[in-house]
Nucleic acid binder design. Sequence first.
DNA 1: GGCTATGTCAAACGCCCGTTTGACTTATAC
DNA 2: GTATAAGTCAAACGGGCGTTTGACATAGCC
Lengths: 225, 225
Amino acid sequence: MARRAPQRTSGPRASSRRDALETQARLLDAAGRLFAAKGFQETSVREICSAAEANVAAVRHHFGSKGGLYRTIVLRSHQGLLEHDPLPRFRDGDDPAAALGRAIEHLLRVTLVRRTGHPYAGQLFAHELRSPTAALDELLEKFLKPLRAEFARIVAALLQDADSPRLRGHCTTFVIGLCVFHELGKEPLKRFGFPPPQRESDVPRLARLVTQFAHAGILSLRQTT
Amino acid sequence: MARRAPQRTSGPRASSRRDALETQARLLDAAGRLFAAKGFQETSVREICSAAEANVAAVRHHFGSKGGLYRTIVLRSHQGLLEHDPLPRFRDGDDPAAALGRAIEHLLRVTLVRRTGHPYAGQLFAHELRSPTAALDELLEKFLKPLRAEFARIVAALLQDADSPRLRGHCTTFVIGLCVFHELGKEPLKRFGFPPPQRESDVPRLARLVTQFAHAGILSLRQTT
DNA sequence: GGCTATGTCAAACGCCCGTTTGACTTATAC
DNA sequence: GTATAAGTCAAACGGGCGTTTGACATAGCC
């Protein structure tokens, strides 16, 4: 059971606190990129550490575990999202149609485009929608719940007298689905020649189409049987 | 390196061709259920064989590999789908609004409800949409492509003079997204208190809402800027 | 009878996974 | 100077995975 002593092959390495922060940063960067591209389950610790030029034990040392690293990334992405792209608030008296347009453009943007401050939030979020894990109810609670509530308020204003919990719920699901499907169904859409926009500048055009479509849909449900 | 001889613990088992078919059937049944519930990657061969009361080697013997078993299941599900729930065809002269309603109800039904003849097709399809693998382009080609083409023809008829490849493509994506999102986003929807219908009898009501919403949305895009 | 093909089984193979170990190096505190 | 804490590293641990092995049992055929 005698453990062979590790043999130093290269020269001595620095190990100050500053190096530690750099290692953490490299791990966060590589892991964020890989988790966003392939999801938690499909990304291995060895893969992350290889990309980050770090030792596998660094994950445990700095983040406790693979899950801890992932949680850190999701949390920071969400934090960056809140800071750089706050959800536009719909206030009483605002034009609900305009608010719908703003909310849809916002959701499409943060879902599809790599934004500074939270470059992977959209893809991480999409992976969580696809297959939520226990560790990530937090994301649903902190991000998706307020987002859905915001859409629901706009939808309620548009439905006017026809508003009811059931109808509002369905409409809200429809609108969010219209936006999120572009990311969720990205792969099949690509294969059929309709790749969702990835550039900032292409979002408004799609947002206008979705908004017009959704707005007309909601209004039509005011006269429902 | 001497391999210990396997010791028979229970009495002799029959091993006729009829038994073989039964074993295959048990494997297909258990694997279909598990693959549909958890996806290919997250389901292990040992798990399948345990549920099917079969030996792990049976998978290789009857289907070549785990992938072969999965391919068989996807293929049979698609076959059953074609036989039991053929896609309603939109013919020239049909009312496009009615055709849209039929197509939407069809897609919601086969996606959400466990149908006899292909009980797992919808969920298997959703798993493939989430994370397609090379082995399953076949499903996209055989099922999703004709489906999308059918929706596209209905959309084109509804758009009338405003029809263009780009607008038709977007509208088609919107409509399919509206239907499929109920399955793709099932988990979050459940957590927010809006579980998608699982019973046959609940589908028409949702289908009517989606159809009205989508119909109004498409018509509104006839006057686009 | 004997022969072959087919099916089943427990056990093992080889690989990859996340995690852990313990020696080593360095920065900081006393 | 010495002790302590922090960081890095190669190597191993323990377990799950899909797959493979080879003995054994049975069915159909000569």
